[in-house]
Amino acid sequence: MNIFAQIFGYLLGLIYGVVNDYGIAIILFTLITKSLLMPFTIKQLRSQKAMAAIQPKMKEIQEKYKDNKEKQNQMLVELYKEHKYNPLSGCLPLLIQFPIIIGLFTAMRQPGEYVFVNNPELLAKATEQTFLWIGNLSVPDLMSNIFSSGPVWFLALPGLMPIISSALTYFQMSSMNSATGGTDAVNNQMKIMQIIFPVMILFWGKTMSAGLILYWTVGSIFQIVQQYIMKRPAKGDVN
């Protein structure tokens, strides 16, 4: 994963050198990296939509041949061939993206090691720049960034950026679930994750840097727009 962290850290450093604003640099960096990953994401979404399209026929086969697994598998394979669907096509994009995403998070989490290499002065200047209501992108965005006084427990709660990111993650997953369909068991699991994952994002907001949460927030907006476009009816989605 280190090589990906070095590559993306170098890219973020280049962008910052042009705009001289760490918050704007993170936004541009997010848009660039999401655009690079777009072909894999589109392939994954198309695979999920194709699975949803043949799901009724799959259920029929599974029910009809529930006592004959060999025949069931044979009929499913024929169904996949008929619709030119590869069950592994939805997994491969995830496997390709995984090391890239880890590298991105590593670079964002350790900007001193991967973004502003051997340049502590530039690191301090960049991460301590004010962005919107956030006074320092290198530390978590807490309620203390918005409220100057109040109970200690309240000021230590995740701030506005983690709340926005959590809400966007919820809507992103909701949009993805409604677009892909699936079995009842899969749908129930996705609904559970739709609740758990945004809560995790909110919880991480207490410890992750505001810069990393900003990256996740912008990325969620990008993916929501992408999913909205992909949801529009188009010929050849199944194929």
Rank of each mutant, 00 (worst) to 15 (best):
S178Y: 06
S166N: 09
L122D: 06
N145Q: 15
E70S: 12
K81W: 02
P56A: 13
E128P: 01
P39Q: 08
Y65E: 04
F116D: 01
L31C: 02
G236S: 07
M173T: 14
Q97T: 08
W216L: 02
W216H: 02
P120W: 09
I54L: 09
K69Y: 01
A53N: 04
D237V: 13
Q44S: 13
M143R: 08
S178T: 11
Y228T: 12
A126C: 03
Q48T: 07
T183W: 08
N239G: 01
Y114D: 10
I54V: 14
K71W: 06
V186G: 05
I195W: 13
T41Y: 03
G150C: 07
I134Y: 01
P87E: 04
M51C: 03
Q62V: 07
S166K: 05
T106L: 14
Y80D: 00
A107R: 04
D141P: 08
S149H: 12
Q48F: 12
L94G: 14
D21M: 09
L95W: 05
A156H: 11
Q189V: 12
N188K: 12
K235A: 15
I224W: 02
Y22F: 15
N187K: 13
L142G: 00
W204G: 01
E82S: 12
L12K: 04
N20A: 14
M58F: 04
F147N: 03
R232F: 11
G13M: 04
M1L: 14
I164L: 14
Q97G: 07
L160H: 00
F203N: 11
Y114I: 04
S174C: 01
A124I: 08
E60K: 15
